[in-house]
Computed example of a mutant assay.
Amino acid sequence: MKNHTINYAQIPMQSVGPFKLTGDLITDNLMVPMATYETPLWPSVARGARTTAHAGGIRVTLIDERMTRSILLQADHAGEALRCMRALKAQQPDMQSIVNQTSRFAKLIDTHFQIIGNLIYLRFEFTTGDASGHNMVTQAADTLFPWILQQFPTLSYVSISGNFCTDKKVSAVNGILGRGKNVVCETIISAKLCQRFLKTTPQALVDLHIKKDLIGSIVSGGLRTANAHVANMLLGFYLATGQDAANIVEGSQAINHAEVTPEGHLYFSTTLPNLIVGTVGNGKGLDFVQQNLEQLGCNDPQAKPGDNARRLACIAGATALCGELSLLAAQTNPGELMSAHLKLERSHRD
């Protein structure tokens, strides 16, 4: 077997901000690293960060967290499948004992199943500490599988993954049942600040949000998504912090909400129900990743298990909101988006 040298690609990276966050994470003057080839993304996110900081910051709320793996089994018929799943549901403490053999951080918190014909799609849901948890939950499921077959000999193995997880694919189930971190980010910006920093009005931005994010997503057949370009911010953030970049597939199923308050201010939020991040595991040992995690305050060895990853998720969500806010504001003004791209991208090439 030949040894292959690993070459690390150089992606342009820059820190943007400063960010001011409140709520579940209180921090100020935070600079956020983003790695991207789309260089106009940096000043755009920075504009959103600057605007929200002047407005009092972004309130971040962590709603839920879990990582999932679904296994696929087969029974003789649907009745037998249902009998086995009902019996299994009562054995969660026994299953946790099996999981404990694989990791001290993996905790089984729930199970869900779907029966299709004689097939059983069994979805395990775990908390995984500071890891995003892909491998952790797969190892736990791989250990649970033979135990389940021993308890229910009428069942048989089909696959360690049955796509009911759902991993790196667009789906409805992740938004409904949860996968990764569920983060809500909110800000309130006065009409004066909207005009000063975003060159728009609260009403213009809300109108565009309705017609673009909401109706446009319906027209396109979007699935549990109503945003402008969340994938852009997530990819830049993921690459800079050593995340599995393919998780932007489900991570970008985000939903914006905007309204004009009775005082005439702009209320704007971005909800990311499938935000998959971690501060330990593959990719985190690289020097630049370690430096970026330390810069974000997400590499604290004294933190309780899971706290570093929760902080990282809140910052990722806030970064997405800033990019959403800035792009939508730009698109309320004819020609602004394209002129910014031409100016910034040509200057970088020159």
Rank of each mutant, 00 (worst) to 15 (best):
R50G: 10
I255C: 15
V60E: 05
E38K: 09
L41I: 04
K343E: 02
Q150V: 04
A303Q: 12
P33F: 02
G178L: 08
R179C: 15
Q92G: 03
A231C: 00
L144E: 03
V249S: 11
H229R: 15
Q195P: 06
I63N: 13
I109K: 11
A226F: 11
Y267H: 14
A35N: 10
S97F: 03
A245T: 15
G283H: 02
H257E: 13
Q291K: 15
P18I: 08
A318P: 08
G236V: 04
N118M: 01
N299C: 12
T51I: 00
H341V: 05
C165G: 15
L108C: 02
G236D: 07
G323Y: 08
Q101A: 03
C165W: 04
G236P: 08
A35C: 12
D244Q: 11
I71Y: 07
G283Y: 01
R47A: 11
N247I: 06
T138C: 13
S269D: 02
T127W: 12
A131L: 02
G133M: 09
A191Y: 09
T68W: 10
L235C: 07
I276P: 11
I176V: 15
L337W: 13
P12Y: 03
N7G: 02
N256S: 06
G278W: 08
N333W: 12
G17N: 01
G242N: 10
E259L: 04
M136I: 06
T128M: 08
G335F: 10
F113S: 06
E186V: 05
V249D: 12
N163I: 02
A309K: 05
K169D: 14
G23W: 01
L239T: 13
D24G: 01
G283N: 03
M95P: 04
I215V: 14
Q243R: 06
L73R: 15
K181D: 14
Q114T: 04
N227W: 07
D207L: 01
R179V: 04
L325W: 07
L198V: 02
V249M: 12
S132A: 14
I210V: 12
V249Q: 12
T319H: 05
A75K: 10
K20I: 00
G323P: 04
E250W: 05
I189S: 01
C84R: 00
D350R: 13
P273S: 08
G162H: 07
F145R: 09
L272Q: 11
I26P: 02
I188M: 10
M85Q: 13
T138D: 12
H229K: 14
A191L: 05
N247P: 02
G180H: 02
T225S: 15
V60N: 06
L30E: 05
A90E: 14
S220T: 03
L321C: 10
M31G: 05
L327R: 15
